[in-house]
Design a protein around this nucleic acid. Structure first.
Length: 797
RNA sequence: GCCGUGGUGGCGGAAUUGGUAGACGCGCUGGACUUAAAAUCCAGUAAAUGUAUAAUUUGUGAGGGUUCGAUUCCCUCCCACGGUACCA
């Protein structure tokens, strides 16, 4: 296609000028209102930027430029999430040191990000793998440790045998490792955890007040997984042992006809001598151990289990003896690892009972009956002695009380497993001493540097840091005797749980961030990024902020009150972009051919930011065409003295609409409004300054390079960035005359031009005198005359 | 199964509190320019009937309802996408 301007030259020119003039440096000014606009920082992968990255980045850039025009002090930083599994796996694949590959990838990403002309304050750039940064990640670990929120314990944890490390629950997707898709297995290991569960209730309740997408809030609610119920103890016959269960349905206790304990339940061992078929039980436990989590949950239709022979439990509500089974459909990690089973009112228990031919007793009646299966709704109590006739909801508390149980709340969310048996992460700042035990590294000794004298950092199941003697053999900070360092490293998600604080004070050597800076800029006013971080990063970050608050570092509850998820950019075939499908679009190629301005405009014009939408190369041609026309119009343009009332009215409407749309991230309609205005503008010549300047200022948010170039061509000496957002005048934005659609009996019949302020009586007379309308009204009587000012007129006969 | 989001031309999408459905862009069709093509410019473009006009009818996943009027609100259902799932 014929291009009217050289985007390569122009875009480079203005990027250099912006950089030289430091125009995007955050203005810290007490007189200005602040806005902190944050992008989710990328991890610098080897593949480079994909077209999804600039989608969110362009949107925030437009918003920030708009805010600067409106005299806000804007904090808009960028950095690199450089530690963690993805970066390390890439280095291993390439056979290089992660330090080197990370450095190279960051250089490439920087070049790519800069080619879009984003208005970041680059002085605040951070890199989570630099010692200046991870010193404070380690400081956070110590803060959590001192607050009793970091602890080490042996527990069944997720293990990926391909990445050779443990994983947090949040990093297991469909029973598989998020990074390599290997099926995750459970292993009993001693690991470090952060006590996220301590904040479960607050994390849940806090969601109500956040301006976040509903879908995302729902995901977090679901992840936190609150259920209210009761803990009830069942006595084992002829033994001191008791089985405690958690149930959300204590009202169904009369229908409990058997119990099931998880294979990992400690009771199995305790009752070893009394279980007559212990060999059989052991065999079953061995079998479940070999199953992956995926197998254990996927085969949920076909339940397995073994009866504990010689053991019975007593239902505390009616003293009936009921059998006890062991089965892997009960999870050891939720509730008490044991359940009471009510097959009449629980689908899973029903399936198990059918298979093992167990008694099914109905204890609740509901108008909606389920012919074949369990009735899980609430209703009226039956077969429940003194509770018969009571509503089941009411019976919950009463029955719990009768059997001496306690009402309680359970959550699905687990503590966050943060230790990793991997090289590329911040070392955990802990020392083990034979005399003093677990000793935190004194703050003054931070950072604990990641050793570089390691020849082989490939994962083996043990942390590669173990092989560096200079690293792990140390003196105990308390007693001075020989001790060793913890050689596991931290999950990369620890680093990015607090990065938005570091941007505010990236060079501070004494604090993770000064109180003043937190006060000045937190919380983040607008956070934009992908939905994939719904339950990992976004829960951890909220958790960190609450911990900081409880340690008096700040006084707000939530780091991100407003959050927007941008949608995915799909391939032109409507499928997710992937190498194997061959539908990947490389942003470098697009910028080279059409320019960054066209790219930015196109991605914003595709549709609403939050929707996922397919890429279409013809679409970007349209945006380039728009810019070419603008360039041509301005090439020989000189300010004149002409004015034009109609155009002026359109201008003020456009200013209002574009401003509104930007604030609400409706960038597709903002661009459409600019196109409409330009179409009318380009029909005129010799226009005075305001018609032209306002347009270029608005355009510069979206297409900043070409706008600067044209601004200069018009003879302006300073950067367009230094201008202010044009003010719109509501009076001018309003029309004096409107085209009013006229309906007869709800059907559109005519359009007449009327004064906006016309009275209803005048309008009625005018409308009824119209030939077209007369035809439809005919001789019939007008029973109703509806007029909505400026909108519509409807005549009912 | 449960939770969430959505369903509008050939395509991406637009439609403040219910008020001309299809803005804007892409594509397509016709024309101008050109030896020709590309690019550019002009016109048209929801569907059906009709005479490329006029006019009429239908139309926002399906079916009902409220209303003078429904893409928008209510009910029932279908479909797609995303999340989650033996959580007792």
């Amino acid at each position: 296609m014929n291009q009217s301007y050289n985007h390569r030259e122009i875009e480079k020119k203005w990027q250099d000028k912006w950089s030289e003039s430091q125009i995007f440096k955050t203005q810290i000014d007490a007189d200005k209102k602040k806005k902190y606009v944050l992008d989710m920082f990328p991890y610098p992968s080897g593949a480079g930027l994909h077209v999804g990255h600039p989608e969110g980045y362009t949107a925030t850039d437009i918003y920030c430029r708009y805010l600067r025009f409106n005299n806000f002090s804007v904090m808009h930083p960028m950095g690199w999430d450089a530690y963690g599994l993805p970066a390390e796996n890439y280095a291993i694949k390439m056979g290089v040191h992660p330090k080197d590959s990370t450095k190279k990838n960051i250089e490439n990403f920087t070049k790519q990000v800069k080619s879009f002309g984003f208005s970041y304050d680059w002085d605040r750039e951070i890199n989570t793998s630099s010692p200046e940064y991870y010193k404070w990640s380690q400081w956070f670990f110590l803060l959590l440790y001192k607050s009793g929120l970091a602890y080490k314990k042996k527990a069944p944890v997720n293990w990926c045998d391909s990445c050779k490390t443990v994983l947090a629950n949040e990093q297991v997707v469909d029973g598989k490792c998020e990074r390599c898709s290997r099926e995750v297995v459970k292993k009993d290991l001693e690991q470090w955890f952060f006590k996220v569960t301590a904040y479960a209730e607050e994390l849940l309740n806090g969601l109500d007040n956040l301006k976040w997408p509903e879908a995302l809030k729902a995901m977090q609610r679901n992840w936190i997984g609150k259920s209210e119920g009761a803990l009830i103890k069942f006595q084992i016959t002829n033994d001191k042992c008791q089985i405690e269960v958690f149930t959300t349905r204590p009202d169904t206790l009369y229908g409990a006809t058997y119990m099931v304990v998880a294979p990992e339940h400690k009771l199995v061992n305790e009752l070893k001598d009394k279980i007559e078929n212990f060999d059989e039980i052991l065999l079953y436990i061995e079998k479940t151990k070999k199953k992956s989590e995926l197998e254990r949950t996927e085969l949920n239709k076909n339940k397995t289990g073994v009866l504990l022979k010689g053991i019975n439990a007593i239902n505390p509500v009616n003293q009936k003896e009921i059998p006890v089974y062991i089965s892997d459909y009960v999870l050891s990690t939720y509730g008490t690892g044991a359940i009471m089973c009510v097959p009449a009112h629980d689908e899973r228990d029903f399936e198990f009972a059918k298979k093992f031919k167990l008694e099914i007793i109905k204890v609740i009646e509901s108008s909606i009956e389920n012919a074949d299966g369990a009735m899980e709704l609430s209703g009226v109590m039956i077969n429940s002695e003194e509770f018969n006739g009571m509503s089941s909801d009411e019976a919950k508390e009463k029955i719990t009380k009768k059997v001496g149980g306690t009402l309680t709340t359970q959550y699905k969310i687990r503590d966050w497993l943060v230790s990793r048996q991997r090289y590329w992460g911040a070392p955990i700042p802990i020392i083990y001493c034979d005399v003093c035990g677990t000793v935190p590294v004194p703050e003054g000794d931070l950072p604990v540097l990641l050793p570089e004298d390691i020849s082989d950092f490939r994962p083996t199941g043990k942390s590669p840091l173990e092989s560096s003697i200079s690293f792990h053999s140390v003196k105990c900070p308390i007693c001075g005797k020989d001790a060793r360092r913890e050689y596991d490293t931290m999950d990369g998600f620890v680093d990015n749980s607090w990065y938005y604080y570091r941007y505010l004070d990236p060079k501070n050597e004494n604090e993770f961030c000064s109180k003043q800076n937190i006060e000045d800029f937190m919380p983040v006013d607008c956070y934009v990024g992908g939905a994939e971080h719904a339950v990992g990063h976004l829960i951890y970050s909220r958790f960190f902020t609450k911990v900081l608050r409880d340690n008096k570092y700040l006084d707000f509850d939530e780091p991100f009150p407003r959050l927007i998820n941008q949608g995915l950019i799909m391939g032109s075939d409507g499928q997710k972009m992937s190498k194997s499908r061959g539908n990947v679009v490389n942003p470098d190629d697009v910028i080279n051919e059409f320019g960054a301005d066209s790219f930015r405009l196109y991605e914003m014009f595709m549709g609403p930011l939050v929707d996922s939408k397919p890429w279409n190369t013809d679409g970007i041609r349209g945006q380039r065409r728009f810019l070419d026309k603008i360039f041509q119009y301005f090439e020989n343009f000189k300010y004149g003295k002409e004015s034009n009332d109609e155009l002026l009215s359109l201008l003020h409407k456009t200013i209002k609409k574009v401003g509104n749309d930007i604030e609400n991230f409706r960038l597709n309609t903002a661009i459409s409004a600019l196109m409409i205005y330009f179409r009318e503008l380009s029909k005129q010549n010799n226009l005075s300054k305001e018609y032209v300047d306002s347009f270029l200022i608005m355009l510069s948010c979206f297409a900043p390079h070409i706008s600067e170039e044209l601004w200069e061509k018009l003879g302006n000496k300073d950067l367009i960035e230094k201008e202010s957002w044009p003010k719109h005048d509501d009076k001018l934005a309003k029309d004096e005359k409107v085209n009013l659609p006229i309906q007869v009996n709800g059907k559109f019949r005519d359009m007449i031009e009327v004064d906006v302020e016309i009275s209803e009586d005048d309008l009625r007379a005018l409308v009824l005198s119209q030939e077209k309308i007369k035809k439809y009204v005919d001789t019939k009587e007008v029973s109703k005359f509806i007029y909505v000012k400026g909108k519509i007129c409807n005549i009912i006969t």
